[in-house]
Design a protein around this nucleic acid. Structure first.
Length: 290
DNA sequence: AATAATTCCAACCGCCGGCAA
DNA sequence: GTTGCCGGCGGTTGGAATTAT
């Protein structure tokens, strides 16, 4: 016998999320923290007629803290290209090196941009051992694709259970949510967004209410006494969940292995080259090597 | 201005491993 | 030990947005 069955699929909503649903989901996670997806779905607590899977996806790919949206930088592009050559299509593993980007984002970017560039430049390959990057009209492309098991394992190991809580600051997502709320308030009736549901008890361990010491961002502050980042929800400053703290920017990344150092050193090198190319008005006839 | 083609990306689907009952 | 759910992952798709004709 396994676990009791999840809710049936009758009445489960699909398709694009509405601002109202986002608000409800954010409110629920604000109360309960990410991870209790089983309890979110349509037959239970949050009041969303969405399956837990859909909620998790919406959170991890769109609403979660620290997500950076918009164009990829040359640096990010270089890292993706480089790691893809080493790891293959292990988007989650690649995303662990770009905490501000979701695996879905990286996958989309690869499929819509980088793959084409790879195809376009595959005729003229230059290698440096395992991978070669080219510059063609302001872009970079990888050519070879030798898989490296050591790097693969390393990347997988980096994908911690808290990988959904990125090593970037909470602010960018608070910004996301702020924008979301702003957009919602503009379109919604004068009545406020639905209040958080309280089907689950408030957990002091998860959201400790702390006095605010310093506020540099309307939605984010910092408690020097505890070293905790405080998020402002509903006008109340609350300490971010432990998972956020452990993997937030306050937490230093684990020591890099030589291979990781190598990856980032070369990525940084690529960025410098890209910057130089930007300065030279996009003249990219010079091959860029990793 | 209208239509077609292309691009982009949010969301869904199916599979798998881990784990709870 | 077995069963079946949950969470995570990668592949795929549908439709909105953008660009080209």
């Amino acid at each position: 016998m396994g676990r009791p069955p999840c809710c049936d699929k009758v009445g489960i909503k699909k398709g694009p999320w509405t601002p109202e649903e986002d608000i409800i989901l954010v409110s629920y996670i604000q109360e309960n923290g990410p991870g209790n997806w089983r309890e979110i779905d349509g037959c239970d607590g949050a009041g969303l007629m969405r399956c837990s899977k859909s909620c998790r996806l919406r959170w991890t790919n769109y609403l979660r803290p620290g997500i950076k949206r918009g164009n990829f930088t040359a640096h990010e592009e270089g890292i993706i290209v480089h790691l893809q050559s080493l790891l293959g299509n292990r988007w989650a593993a690649i995303a662990s090196y770009l905490p501000q980007r979701t695996d879905n984002d990286i996958k989309n970017y690869w499929n819509t941009h980088l793959k084409k560039k790879l195809a376009a430049s595959s005729n003229s390959s230059v290698s440096k051992g395992h991978a070669a990057i080219f510059a063609d009209d302001s872009t970079t492309t990888v050519v070879s694709s030798a898989s490296n098991p050591e790097v693969t394992q390393m990347a997988i190991a980096r994908r911690s259970p808290f990988a959904d809580c990125p090593s970037s600051s909470y602010a960018s997502s608070m910004d996301n949510i702020s924008k979301l709320l702003d957009g919602f308030m503009k379109t919604a009736s004068p009545s406020p967004p639905p209040p958080p549901h309280h089907h689950h008890s408030y957990s002091p361990a998860y959201y400790d209410v702390k006095p605010v010491v310093e506020v540099s961002n309307p939605m984010l502050s910092f408690d020097h006494m505890s070293g905790a980042e405080l998020a402002c929800y509903d006008g109340v400053h609350q300490q971010l969940p432990t998972s956020f703290m452990e993997h937030g920017r306050l937490n230093q990344a684990p020591p890099l292995s030589s291979i990781e150092n190598w990856l980032f050193d070369e990525a940084a090198e690529a960025e410098q080259v890209a910057d130089l190319m930007d300065l030279s008005d996009g003249c990219c006839s010079v091959p860029m090597m990793f």
